[in-house]
Simulated scan of single mutants.
Amino acid sequence: MRIVDGVETFVGDEAGFPLIIKQINNDEAVDLVSWIERNRGFVDSSILDYGALIFRGFDVETVSAFEAVATACTSENWVDYIEATSPRSQVQSKTSTSTDYDSKYKIFPHNEKSYSADWPRYVFFYCENPPSAQGSTPLVDCRRVYMAVPDVIKSRFKRDKLMYVRQFSNYMGIPWQKAFNVESKEEMEAYCQANYIDKIEWKDDGTPKITYTRNAALKHPITGDPCWFNHGVFFNVHAMEPALKEIFLSAFEEDELPYNTYYGTGAKIEKETVASLSKIYYDNAVSIPYEKNDIIFMDNILIAHGREPFEGDRKIYVTMTEQMRLEDAEYC
């Protein structure tokens, strides 16, 4: 443990991350925004070293106070949730629920919007009310994932890249207009052209099927560390929980699923490869149970995040800052 300007800092797990920054239990409360502003150099270096920080025990009682912490840590360069894949409810102008996805299912670890042409550099989670059981946000160091991926798998994805196929429908999932914040087919096509979506097809029911390729790994823009950065497992049919997989495959043919991933050539990713990658993520996952008013601050390139299934009235909110673009990334 180390005391920094009257606040405790210590590593939260034997894996060596995240760093927990905690209000010391005494009569003199520390204003978190002021503390961050005084110690911005420490915060900046720590987020690079640990990938994720947890601010704990501070008087952050409102969403506005949460957004002020995010601004103090980074900037007011907010990132909107365009190309949405998870249902969310807006809480405040820059903050939404982390997801409205059914509490009985886990969410696989992923880097926010890694499938998109742009993504947030930073992601913040705020715990207004912790769950009564489970419900933590597993954190995964993507530097370690990259190192653990077998060379034969890394080489295949570096050569062929990763193909995403997303298909919308009129009766399941987020409507395409809401997901892309557009109102017409023309706006949708213009968005796809501007954001490196290789192909858009309009189906008979008036909904789109989009296909595009992305890289599977990139170098961190400051440290240069190679990081596994994609939704290749997250969206793959073989990564679905058995009950969900049965539901979806009873409703759709495999080539008509709402989401799926392939090698960039269009070849199917082997079930064994998906299983190997999935195991690597979970072998490197760290879960810290939430406490009320916790804020998780993570570098979205260094850290993937997921969600455990949970019980109780879990209220976790999210905001994102510092947009990055595909053109500015260095891939590996």
Rank of each mutant, 00 (worst) to 15 (best):
K161E: 15
A216G: 13
N215D: 15
D225A: 08
D198H: 07
K161N: 15
E253I: 01
M188V: 09
W176R: 05
F180S: 03
Y262K: 08
I222W: 11
N170I: 11
L162Y: 12
K161V: 13
I200Y: 02
V182L: 09
F229V: 04
Y282K: 15
M163C: 08
T261C: 04
T207Q: 10
N284M: 04
F229H: 02
F229D: 02
W202M: 07
A275S: 13
M240D: 08
F168T: 04
Y171E: 06
K271I: 12
A179Q: 04
Y212K: 05
A275K: 14
P226D: 09
A267R: 05
Y171R: 03
I174F: 01
I197P: 00
N236H: 07
Y212M: 11
A243M: 10
Y281I: 10
Q167C: 06
E253A: 06
L244P: 09
E272V: 14
Y191N: 08
N284Y: 00
E270C: 14
E246D: 13
I222P: 01
I174W: 01
Y196H: 10
N260T: 07
E246I: 09
L162P: 15
A239K: 02
L218Y: 15
A251K: 12
N284E: 08
K178Q: 14
A179R: 05
P226M: 12
A243F: 11
S278F: 02
G264V: 03
